[in-house]
Amino acid sequence: MSPEATSIEGRIVATDLTKVFGQVKAVDGLSFSVEPGSVTGFLGPNGAGKTTTLRIILGLAAPTSGSGTISGVTYAHLPAPGRTVGAVLEATSFHPGRSARNHLRVFCAAAGLSDKRADEALELVGLTQAARFPVRGFSLGMRQRLGLATALLGNPRVLLLDEPANGLDPEGIAWLRGLLRHFADVDGRTVLVSSHVLSEVEQTVDRVVIIARGRLIYEGRLADLEGASAGVVVRTPTPEQLSAALAPLNVKVTGRPDGAVAVVGATPEAVGHAAWEAHIEVHELRSGSSSLEETFLRLTADAGDPPAAPV
């Protein structure tokens, strides 16, 4: 990637990012980019290194090697970070005894913004009624909204949100989806949203960056991920024989929790023909039109990660 391409206004770039905690490589040579004008999902099972990656890009943690940049520079070198980038890292960054409004006013002062912005941000996230109450009484959903309000104070052109749907009710999720789509589609802002559940963001994002064990698994359009082969599902009393019969086809055969086997790398016709030739009894044979979530789980599980629990 050429330097000019890297420094596009609002683009987030991770280059060979590595972060080691003691013996553990939390992030391992991770490279990806996030484009302005899109909502990008940053996906991976819990513990995949998403939050650590975001923290490095945001300058809160130093990478062991590699770099994370926004608009071509590291976070600390952004001219006015409070007005360029907004971020929420888990919905817990509040003093419980401080009111929502005072919380925002503290950061208005720090960013050199007028106190009016605090009320505007509260209005935007629908917390005007709760503005004067201490945060300790807030539900998780309200805290998510307040975190978002904090991120939006400086009217940033880049938004990074870590698990923003946590604790939001379905209505809240729909609202968030609309807000993020508006930011990307209408304003051309950069939006990066992390999640450990693909289905939570699949209606919101147009691109995805999938990681597991700190490594990149997939980066690209969500639509292309959808097209990835889900394979063929076969139910047979003799899976070992089937596996042997399919060996010449150079396919990948894996057992499924329900006792059937999944065959990736061949068409249903080819699998059916191989079974018939080898006189293998087959009770079911279908194209595995797996959901995106299954594809996601398979991708991240292939990386050797403990599979995320099905939701």
């Binding site: 600390a76 970070p81 409070g82 960054s93 509040f94 003093h95 419980p96 950061f107």
Partner: peptide, 18 residues
Amino acid sequence: TTEFRHFTSRPTFLIEPR
């Protein structure tokens, strides 16, 4: 320590990374 305990250190250092 309140900043670390309640993680207000995050917005604080996001707005002023110096």
